[in-house]
C-alpha cells in the first residue's frame, strides 16, 4: 500500500495508465520494410520479326530526316536555331512583294498605281522575284543554300555517320540523290513557293481574270523554270562543296565565296575591260542571262546566251561529278 502511494506520488501509475509502457510490448521489435536484392538493369533481349519496307521507304526516311529537321526541333537532323531563324527571315523577306500587292489592292488612286508598277506582275518583277541580284541573290538565296546544304555531307564525313547508311541496304546512288533532293526541296520550298505565291497573290488581290492569266502565264512559267534551274545549280554546287569538306562552315563559306566572289570579280573585270565574258564563271550571271531569255527580257550581257547555257551545264556537271566521286569515297569501315 505504501509502495502504491509512493508510485502515485511519483506519477508512475498515471504514466503507465496514459502510455501503457509496461503492458507487455517490451519484446516486440519493429519490422523494417525490405526489398529483395536484385539487379537494377534487367537485360532482356526481345526478338523482332517485323517486315522491312522496300527501297522507297528507306529513301523517304533519308528525305524526311533532313527536311523535317528544319521544321521540327527534335527527332530529325538538327539544324541550329540560327539557321531556322534565318530561313524564316528569308521566307518573310521573299514575300514582301505580296504585302505590297495587298496594300496596292486596298488603296486607290496614284499610290495604288505606283505600288502596282513597282511590285505588280510584269516581266521584270517575275524575273526579279527569282533572279534579282539585290536582295535575293546577294543576301538571301546564297545564304539560304549555304546554311541548308553546308553540313549535309560534311557532317557524315566528320561524324563517320556514312557507315550508318552504307552498312544498311542504302546504295550510294540513293544516298546521294536523297541528300540532293532534300536540299533542293528546301530551296524550292522557299524560292519557288514564294514565287508562286507572289503570282497567285497578284491574281487574287487585283481580281485579275482569265485573260490576264493567259497573257502572263508564259512569263510566269519562264520565271519558274529559271527558278528551278537556280535551285538545281545552287544545290549541286553547294552539295559538292559539302562533300569535299569535313566542316559545314568551310563548305558554307566556300559556297558564298564562289557565288558572290565570281560575280564581283566578273563585275570588276567588266568595269575595267568592258567585257562580260568573265561572267561565264559566275553561276548567278549564267542563270540570270538564261532567265532573261526565258522571261523575255532584253539580254544585257555582250556574250552569247549559248555560252552561258554551256557554262551552266558545265558547272552542274562538274559539281555533280565531284559530289559523286566524293560520295563513292565515303567510308564504311576503316580497314
Amino acid at each position: 500500500m505504501s509502495e502504491n502511494t509512493e508510485a502515485d506520488n511519483l506519477g508512475e501509475a498515471r504514466i503507465e495508465a496514459a502510455y501503457g509502457s509496461g503492458d507487455g510490448d517490451e519484446d516486440i521489435s519493429a519490422t523494417v520494410a525490405s526489398a529483395p536484392q536484385g539487379q537494377i538493369l534487367e537485360q532482356v533481349y526481345r526478338p523482332w520479326d517485323g517486315p522491312l519496307g522496300p527501297r522507297w521507304v528507306r529513301n523517304y526516311a533519308i528525305y524526311r530526316h533532313h527536311v523535317y529537321g528544319i521544321i521540327s526541333g527534335s527527332g530529325h537532323r538538327r539544324y541550329h536555331p540560327f539557321v531556322r531563324l534565318t530561313l524564316l527571315v528569308v521566307i518573310l523577306g521573299s514575300m514582301t512583294p505580296i504585302l505590297m500587292l495587298l496594300l496596292s489592292s486596298m488603296i486607290s488612286g496614284d499610290a495604288s498605281g505606283f505600288l502596282n508598277r513597282m511590285w505588280g506582275v510584269n516581266r521584270y518583277n517575275l524575273w526579279g522575284n527569282v533572279l534579282g541580284y539585290f536582295p535575293r541573290n546577294l543576301c538571301m538565296w546564297p545564304l539560304l543554300t549555304a546554311l541548308v546544304v553546308g553540313g549535309l555531307v560534311s557532317d557524315d564525313r566528320r561524324n563517320g555517320t556514312s557507315a550508318l547508311y552504307f552498312s544498311r541496304p542504302v546504295s550510294r546512288l540513293d544516298y546521294a540523290f536523297m541528300k540532293w533532293l532534300s536540299a533542293a526541296s528546301v530551296l524550292a520550298a522557299v524560292i519557288l513557293l514564294t514565287y508562286m505565291l507572289y503570282y497567285s497573290a497578284a491574281v487574287v488581290f487585283k481580281g485579275e481574270g482569265w485573260s490576264f492569266i493567259a497573257d502572263t502565264i508564259p512569263i510566269f512559267m519562264g520565271g519558274l523554270v529559271a527558278g528551278l534551274l537556280l535551285v538545281i545549280t545552287y544545290t549541286s554546287i553547294g552539295i559538292a562543296l559539302s562533300s569535299i569538306s569535313t566542316s559545314r562552315f568551310t563548305a558554307s563559306v566556300s559556297f558564298l565565296g564562289l557565288v558572290l566572289g565570281s560575280k564581283i570579280v566578273a563585275w570588276l573585270v567588266e568595269l575595267q575591260f568592258e567585257t562580260t565574258y568573265v561572267y561565264l564563271l559566275s553561276p548567278y550571271d549564267c542563270l540570270a542571262h538564261l532567265g532573261q531569255w526565258l522571261v523575255g527580257l532584253p539580254l544585257n550581257y555582250d556574250h552569247s546566251l549559248t555560252l552561258s547555257i554551256v557554262s551552266l551545264l558545265a558547272m552542274n556537271a562538274a559539281a555533280l561529278s565531284i559530289f559523286a566521286s566524293r560520295v563513292s569515297s565515303l567510308e564504311v569501315t576503316r580497314e
Partner: peptide, 10 residues
C-alpha cells in the same frame, strides 16, 4: 562499326 558513327546532335 569500330569508330564513332553516330550523329552527336541526335
Amino acid at each position: 562499326a569500330e569508330y564513332d558513327s553516330l550523329d552527336p546532335g541526335l
